[in-house]
Design a binder for these strands. Structure first.
Lengths: 157, 157
DNA sequence: GGAATAAACATCGTATACGAAGTAATCCAA
DNA sequence: TTGGATTACTTCGTATACGATGTTTATTCC
C-alpha cells in the first residue's frame, strides 16, 4: 500500500508541462514556417547535420532524438526537395550517409535568424533558462534510462 | 542587420530540449501503457475531466492544451470504449458536454498510481522541478501570446 | 567458410496533432 | 426579425511519431 505522491492536477506534472509547452512551440513554429515547407522536425535535422557534419541515419536519430523509422520518410522528402543528400556508404552498404546541401545551409541560415529573433522577442531570463535546460537534459537521461512501471487494467477494461 | 544571439547547437535551444524530452516521455508512457489501449493524451483528457468536472469540448481543449479538432476523434474513441460520455447540451445545441465515467475513473486511478510510481523512480529534486514547472508555464504563456516572426525563403526555394 | 546473429534502413499500421474548411446553432444589429 | 457574423464542433488533408516487422548487408562463431 504505497500512496507515494498522489497526483492532483496536470499542472503539477512535469510531463504535462513539457507536453503542453511542446505543443505551444509546435503551433508557434508552424505559424513562423507556414508556406515555406519547412517544419520544426526538418529544422532540427538541418541543425544536426550542420553542426555534426555528414552522418548515418542512426547517428542522426540519436542527435535529433527521434527514432530512425521516423527519420526515413522525412529524409526522403528533404532529399527530393534538395536540402540534403542521401548516399549509400561504400564501406558499409547498410549505412546511408546524410549530408546537408548548400541549399539546405541557406534555408538553415534564415531559419536560425528567425528563431533567434523569435527567442529574443520572448524576453526569457538567461539564467533561469540555462538552469531549465540543464534540468530538462538531466531528466531526459533519467527517463531514457528508466524502466517504466507497467499499467495493468485487469478487472476494469 | 541584427545578429541577435546566434544559435550554435540544438542543446542551447529551449524548444529542442522540450521537444526532445517530450519524445522521451512519449516512449516512456507508450511502454508503461502498452497493451492497455491507454495513451498519454487520453490520460491527460481523463485527468482534466476528473479535476475540472464535466465540460465542453472547447474548455477541455484549453485544459488539455490541444486544439478541439485533435480532441474530436479521440473523444469519440474514448466514449465508444466507455471511459467518458459525450452529450449534446440542452441549453446550447452546439455544445457537447464531456464527462468521465466510473470506468474512466477506475482507469485513471491506476494510471495515476503508475505515474506516481514512475516519477518516484526518477528521483527528481522537488525544488528544481518546482522551479522548472514555474519557468515552463511562464514560457508557455509568452509563446502563446507572441506573434512569431515569419520565415521567408524567397530566392532559395 | 557458411550458417546463425546482429545491425542499418525502410515499410507498415496506428495514434496524435495541426490548420483549413464545413456544418449547424446562436447571436446581433439594422 | 432576419440575414450576416460568430461560435462550437466535426471533417479533411497533411505531417510527425512510435513499435513491429521486413529486407539487405555485415559480423561472428563454430
Amino acid at each position: 500500500m504505497d500512496k507515494s505522491a498522489p497526483i492532483n492536477t496536470l499542472d503539477e506534472l512535469l510531463c504535462f508541462n513539457v507536453y503542453s509547452l511542446h505543443r505551444s512551440f509546435g503551433r508557434y513554429y508552424q505559424a513562423a514556417f507556414s508556406e515555406t515547407g519547412l517544419t520544426y522536425p526538418k529544422f532540427v535535422i538541418l541543425m544536426a547535420l550542420d553542426v555534426g557534419g555528414p552522418m548515418s541515419v542512426s547517428d542522426l536519430s540519436v542527435r535529433a532524438g527521434v527514432e530512425a523509422n521516423t527519420l526515413s520518410p522525412l529524409l526522403k522528402k528533404m532529399a527530393d526537395f534538395g536540402a540534403i543528400t542521401r548516399t549509400r556508404s561504400e564501406a558499409d552498404e547498410r549505412r546511408v550517409e546524410v549530408a546537408i546541401t548548400p541549399m539546405g545551409q541557406d534555408i538553415l541560415t534564415r531559419a536560425r535568424d528567425i528563431i533567434s529573433q523569435g527567442f529574443k522577442d520572448l524576453q526569457i531570463d538567461p539564467d533561469r533558462m540555462f538552469e531549465a535546460l540543464t534540468f530538462l537534459g538531466e531528466v531526459r537521461v533519467k527517463v531514457e534510462d528508466s524502466d517504466p512501471p507497467k499499467l495493468d487494467l485487469d478487472g476494469i477494461a
